[in-house]
């Protein structure tokens, strides 16, 4: 194995919080194992490699690119296309690249509304001349440019061809190491388009909390409103947990920490609209049989759209708020 040439690895971020890059660092001392097998050729958070350097690479030069973050700007799209061209394997890394993630919730709004809020009506903004970001601005010194801010947030596979998806917000580091080692050791890779680093079962399968067929939810509580008994299924206690419709792979991290699952690992294979699936799974647990009882329980869900589509709006059938 030592004779094998090192593989070339790139990590890039689109519309992201930086957490995914940190999760790569979370491999801790395993990083030494990684660099033993791989050259990190591009990783803006850690290395000073310029876009120009990437552009000058021959096509297919990079073995694996972990692309995290959604596609929100023309810069994101440009880099996605560039890295696609330069990479043998392009992995959508993390919830944002996979399904749109938290930035994707902006699709419940649009560019105009977002600019107005951020640059005009926000309480901490004083912008009497109504100056908004523009792609080109003339100043004394010359022309300044900014990437174009798109109306929609897109998933990575809505702009380029993606080989694999590794979900999570952020992905569980152990899963990344497993995937990485699989590539390094030359194991047979799963078919293109697969979601990797996940289990073929939902969270509940690995959740140790006690579950029964009596869900009986009459009202949903926010975590601070009730005292969790520490052992009963959170949904059965009225704490909205996305476990029943979320794919396993993280090790039920949130619920192990007594916090409800928020759904970052996305839906099971073959589900085209994660939010709708979440809703029907959760609706199935309601106790009420009469319309008003059901309405009351549903009304107690704070921000249902944001809750059920928290990580998946751009990648769902719904995709965005319509006009």
């Amino acid at each position: 194995m030592a004779d094998k040439p090192k593989i070339k690895l790139a990590v890039y971020w689109g519309a992201a919080c930086g957490g995914c890059c940190v999760s790569v660092l979370d491999v801790h001392e395993s990083l030494f194992t990684v660099v033993e097998h791989a050259d990190l050729v591009f990783w803006p958070i850690a290395l000073d490699v310029k876009y120009k350097d990437v552009e000058e690479m021959p096509d297919g030069n990079i073995d694996i690119t972990l692309f995290n973050g959604a596609v929100r700007t023309s810069e994101n799209e440009h880099m996605a296309k560039l890295l696609r061209k330069k990479s043998k394997i392009l992995i959508a890394y993390g919830s944002c690249a996979h399904m749109g993630g938290i930035p994707g919730l902006a699709n419940f709004s649009n560019k105009e509304e977002i600019f107005k809020r951020v640059y005009e009506t926000s309480e901490s903004i004083d912008n009497p001349n109504k100056v908004f970001p523009a792609t080109e601005t003339e100043v004394k010194e010359g022309k300044l440019t900014l990437p174009k801010f798109y109306n929609d947030v897109m998933t990575l596979n809505q702009v380029v061809d993606v080989d694999y998806y590794l979900p999570g917000c952020p992905p569980q580091t152990e899963r990344l190491v497993e995937v990485f080692m699989a590539v390094v050791t030359g194991a047979t890779l799963p078919p293109k388009g697969s979601v990797i680093g996940v289990f073929d079962r939902v969270q509940c399968d690995d959740c140790k909390r006690k579950k029964s067929d009596k869900k009986g939810i009459t009202k949903f509580y926010r975590a601070w409103e009730v005292v969790d008994d520490g052992e009963t299924c959170l949904n059965e206690q009225g704490i909205l947990c996305m476990g029943p419709a979320t794919r396993g792979g993280c090790g039920v991290r949130c619920v192990e920490g007594n916090a409800p699952c928020r759904g970052c690992y996305g839906p099971m294979e073959g589900i085209p609209d994660p939010g709708a699936k979440m809703m029907s799974a959760i609706a199935s647990m309601l106790e009420g049989k009469e319309q008003d009882e059901i309405d009351k329980a549903i009304e107690s869900v704070v921000d249902p759209a944001g809750t059920f589509y928290r990580f998946s709006l751009p990648g769902s059938i719904l995709r965005r708020k319509q006009k």
Partner: peptide
């Protein structure tokens, strides 16, 4: 694929 959550039973 069944996770044994028993939602379907009710």
């Amino acid at each position: 694929k069944c996770c044994g959550c028993q939602v379907c039973i009710n």
